[in-house]
């Protein structure tokens, strides 16, 4: 597999920064960076990573099954991660998650039929003082009320639709 120039540069930096004889140390970030481009850890990605790092399939599989951000199937174009942990819960995080389920018509780990949105109830994302908080892909959104959420979804749907036409 060959990735974009940007991803390849990132992977090269990752490999350069490992101590001699410890190539495997690049495994977790490498999987995440590749997933960012490919969308999921597919069997081809596993094979590719094995070759690049000289590790076994088992080494890769056990890591993929451990970390919550690594996934086998692609998420939606916009992956919505809503925190319902204690600090966000106290200011409406759980209600926001329920609202999102209704608005998108999907539940935890669901993907909308058009592949535009996926939803995940996540644990603390380090935005405790600015809750209810969520991430859309890697972007943080703070103080998200149901109204703010709805506006954002319409905007994303619009952007996503246009991107698809192009």
């Amino acid at each position: 597999m060959k990735f974009s120039e940007q991803t390849e540069a990132r992977l090269a930096r990752l490999i350069e920064s490992r101590p001699p004889g410890h190539l495997r140390s690049a495994l977790v970030p490498m999987l995440l960076f590749i997933q960012d481009e490919v969308g999921a850890i597919t069997p081809e990605v596993v094979e590719e990573v094995c070759q690049r790092l000289g590790v076994s399939r088992r080494d890769v599989e056990e890591v993929v099954s451990y970390y919550s951000m690594l996934r086998r199937k692609p998420a939606g174009r916009y992956h919505i991660q809503i925190c319902t942990n204690i600090s966000c819960m106290l200011v409406g995080g759980a209600e926001l998650f329920e609202h999102a389920c209704r608005k998108l018509g999907i539940g935890h780990h669901g993907v909308t039929e058009d592949g535009m949105f996926s939803l995940e109830e996540v644990e603390c994302i380090g935005a405790c003082c600015w809750g209810p908080a969520m991430q859309v892909n890697y972007d943080y959104h703070h103080h998200v009320t149901p109204e703010v959420f709805d506006r954002l979804i319409e905007q994303l749907r619009d952007n996503g639709g246009k991107a698809r036409e192009r």
């Binding site: 920064s17 410890h22 495997r24 140390s25 977790v28 056990e62 890591v63 970390y67 919550s68």
Partner: peptide, 28 residues
């Protein structure tokens, strides 16, 4: 020299020895 290294979703990796396992490319 200093390098950044990313986790991939795991509270347990905040525990220092689990973090080191993760840094070495293993489960936390």
């Amino acid at each position: 020299d200093i390098y950044t290294h990313s986790g991939a979703g795991s509270y347990e990796c905040g525990e220092e020895t689990a973090l080191l396992e993760s840094l070495e490319g293993k489960r936390g």
